[in-house]
Design a protein around this nucleic acid. Structure first.
Lengths: 135, 135
DNA sequence: CTGACTAAGTCCGGAATCTGGACCCACCGT
DNA sequence: ACGGTGGGTCCAGATTCCGGACTTAGTCAG
């Protein structure tokens, strides 16, 4: 987890990934929506590409233009973003509900829930025990 | 989500919370296990307490000593930590498997899965659509 | 009573990162 | 020729992080 946070724990990194999920793949678009300094965002996109989370794809030849798309590893960050969003919606919403609501294709408003893959039960910290530890 | 990351997105914040989940509630213990600079960890614990994620509890009167315990809001960060761990286990494990394995009380090795709370289906980014947007 | 140790921090100076704003280049439309 | 767009880079200053030394209060061993 420490290593995971070395990559995605930097400021703006997960916000950039979220923008990619929401369909904003262009640099200027991300700058506008996240409010990140252009410089920082450029650096972050570089580290995300280097980490194999995003892919820099040229979509226009002559004035070389690029888009950032999620790789498989990037798409697997979706659960992280959903759980973060849910926590924020619950504890920081404040002014008239959450700023972004998603709908699941099953027809309901999407609320992300974390379960044990084996038994399907909702996950609680007290129901788990460590098996091995390092450090 | 931006606001959530303002709180838990700082370096070491989530690692401190993880330690609390693992039962290490003391300052020196956290320093040892996370490797964070004492100074930074002290600052981080202060912001987490201020944000209502941890609670600073005195466990010894005379040389005043404190432990950090999770509040309800803190416990609700468990899903975030689990999904981060899972991503790291999958993409960064490298040397002989993940550094920490948890067991769920159902008897299996714990693998966290994120599902739609309404229909129980595993969550995929392509199965969701935004309903409202701000910004 | 001296020295060593623990716990929970604080203090410090230097290093790394983040920030906003200005700038650059290539192209497009008018 | 002029302004706008897209994807950056460059810079100086502010903020944050870092490791190590230090502090305070109390305990334990010899």
């Amino acid at each position: 987890m420490a290593r995971t946070l070395d990559i995605v724990g930097e400021k703006w990194a997960l916000l950039a990934v979220r923008e990619a999920f929401l369909g904003n793949h262009r640099f200027d678009e991300m700058v506008k929506r996240t409010g990140a300094p252009r410089d920082t965002l450029a650096a972050r996109l570089r580290t995300l590409v280097a980490a194999g989370i995003l892919e820099r794809r040229r979509y226009c030849e002559h004035p070389a233009r690029f888009e950032y798309h999620l790789t498989g590893a990037g798409r697997d960050l979706y659960p992280v973003i959903m759980t973060l969003m849910r926590w924020g919606d619950r504890y920081l919403a404040g002014d008239g509900g959450p700023p972004l609501v998603l709908q699941h294709d099953c027809g309901h408003r999407l609320v992300a829930q974390v379960v044990c893959e084996a038994c399907g039960e909702a996950l609680e910290a007290r129901d788990t025990t460590p098996l091995t530890t390092v450090g």
